[in-house]
Design a protein around this nucleic acid. Sequence first.
DNA 1: CTAAATAGAACTAAAATAGTCCACAATTAC
DNA 2: GTAATTGTGGACTATTTTAGTTCTATTTAG
Lengths: 151, 151
Amino acid sequence: MLRLSKLTDYATVILSHIAKESGQTHSALCVADATGIALPTVSKILKILVNAKVLVSTRGIKGGYALARAPENISVADVISALEGPIALTECSISHEGCEQASGCGISANWGLINQAIQHALEAVTLADMIKPVNVPQEFMIPVSSIYRPI
Amino acid sequence: MLRLSKLTDYATVILSHIAKESGQTHSALCVADATGIALPTVSKILKILVNAKVLVSTRGIKGGYALARAPENISVADVISALEGPIALTECSISHEGCEQASGCGISANWGLINQAIQHALEAVTLADMIKPVNVPQEFMIPVSSIYRPI
DNA sequence: CTAAATAGAACTAAAATAGTCCACAATTAC
DNA sequence: GTAATTGTGGACTATTTTAGTTCTATTTAG
């Protein structure tokens, strides 16, 4: 399947938990308890999310983690790219080196466009959406034509 | 990155090559030569694509592989799901067993919707599009609202 | 100073992926 | 009918990626 790593999956669960009480700071231990994910794993993910500026942390005895901005401003794309790097389906969308297929590499440009379509889809969904019960803006349209033009 | 396996990447290259001369049958060897991908790998991918009914094969001395239908009717989604199984970003979109996160799994329904949006995006692009130089129908719109409703 | 918390890096183990190989089946040419 | 060519299916191995753990520093409240 078009797979997201388990860590990314956990990250969305963790962020959802934090987003539900956006004001507070949450310690790694407290998040681990609430989500049922093992503490070292939670800790690792939280660190990554801080580096990606999705979370902010405070050290010290009353420290913990909190969202870096409002849930409406954190997209699923932000979370995915924090954990998995740039959103691109194929290697050659990122770097072209060594891609010397004898024929047929007008393809890469097309992949680029597909990637952009998907990226826009993922940017359109925010943490705020994720914590809402399923229920959606009527006009959640992705105008692919606007991005589907030569790079 | 939101990654597609290398085999899937190869598959699009291989299919593009075959699509460029849709009438003929192509032997595995001939495809390997044309694409620069190692023969055993090409062979493996071709077999998978036959099982997925994207290609048809004929055996014997004049045998080889050909598209099962017109390039316009083979979508990128077909190719991806042939090689990677159902298009879903997270485990729990496919099966729910064992997903007992203490809190916060109203998330899975939302993932389901995101998956569908992406699937539709990938279904909208065909092999025929891939072999064209970048150049696109003006109204390649994905009306996500039509699918973004409770399952 | 001490306790509780994050930061960062290194390491190990497990799982998925890529790639190869082989014995078999089908078809065609001669 | 036999041999040559091509696909079929499965098993296997090596490599790479991912997941998960552990350890040592650093920060800060009390």
